[in-house]
């Protein structure tokens, strides 16, 4: 399969649905993260990615979709700075990525909260290392805790919360320091479907409020369509880009209607067939 770029195939024709998020093709784009012909493997003989070129725009919600083992998580780890490419370059705002940085947030699948800290202390953790006035920090922590629906749980410890609540804390903790990009590697994979939908809606609301881009990895086509501005399907073979879809659903994106609309189903079918094609 060659690397092919598709411009959105299913187009929405609903009245009053012309509103899309500003970072679709209509607005001048600015690259925040760039992968330039990146090659990576745990050894030189077993490559996971080869010559991958990828660009993430400021403020966009980009989702990587693809079969297991296609290198989705590897791309995350490269951008986060946990891995170094064997060849090629990963850049952030034009500068090469040299290691983890607070300008690139990461939300893990789970297990990443500090069990010995309260919700409030967890969320405020990143502020320990930032020279901001104390009052400003407190206000930001307070407002994001409210935004993710954790008010009243500030003094609780992670073990006193449900799985969904814990992921809310993790998202809030990464977002409160306003990274330019937030990397989310299947963050909602471990929670039940109902909770998951709630988390997705909150994430979209947060994304509206906090300006950074989001790079999301998931197995779920529905999740990808509901959340993303742009979806990239990675090929099974060495993580090439198999397909790119721009999603245009009516704003506000987080409404439940967007899960059942014809446009949504069209995208879903389309992506499903593409996924099927690569096996």
């Amino acid at each position: 399969m060659s690397q092919s770029i598709h411009i959105p195939s299913p187009v929405t024709h609903q009245p009053g649905s012309h509103q899309t998020k500003p970072h679709s093709s209509t607005v001048a784009q600015e690259e925040i993260i760039g992968l330039d012909r990146v090659t990576f493997g745990y050894s030189r003989k077993h490559l996971v990615l080869q010559d991958l070129t990828l660009s993430i725009q400021r403020g966009e919600f980009l989702t990587l979709l693809g079969p297991s083992g296609c290198g989705k998580s590897t791309i995350m780890n490269l951008i986060a700075g946990f891995y170094k490419p064997l060849a090629g370059l990963v850049t952030h705002g034009g500068e090469p990525v040299k290691g983890p940085s607070e300008r690139r947030g990461v939300v893990f699948q789970g297990n990443a909260l500090f069990d010995w800290m309260t919700v409030e202390q967890n969320v405020a953790f990143g502020f320990r290392f930032q020279p901001l006035p104390k009052i400003e920090k407190q206000q930001k922590v307070k407002s994001i805790i409210e935004l993710v629906g954790l008010r009243g749980s500030e003094r609780k410890y992670p073990y006193q919360l449900s799985g969904g609540m814990r992921q809310r804390v993790a998202v809030a903790r990464s977002m409160v320091v306003q990274p330019e990009i937030l990397l989310m590697d299947e963050p909602f994979a471990a929670v039940d479907v109902q909770t998951r939908e709630g988390l997705q809606e909150e994430l979209l609301k947060l994304h509206e409020q906090v300006s950074g881009a989001i790079l999301f990895v998931t197995h779920s086509i529905e999740e990808a369509v509901f959340l993303s501005d742009r979806i990239i399907i990675l090929d099974r073979n060495l993580g090439g880009i198999y397909d790119e879809t721009i999603v245009q659903l009516p704003a506000p994106r987080y409404t439940a209607m967007n899960r059942v609309s014809d446009a949504f189903n069209q995208y879903r079918t389309d992506l499903y067939l593409k996924m099927k094609a690569i096996g």
């Binding site: 986060a80 990461v106 297990n111 909260l113 500090f114 953790f125 990143g126 320990r128 290392f129 990464s174």
Partner: peptide, 25 residues
């Protein structure tokens, strides 16, 4: 868990802070 250490690192913690706030507890 590695995730905890990496999470702290991406939030701006240096080695000493990671030791004090994450690994030791």
């Amino acid at each position: 868990p590695k995730e905890k250490i990496l999470a702290a690192r991406t939030l701006g913690a240096n080695d000493l802070s990671i030791f004090a706030f994450v690994i030791f507890p």
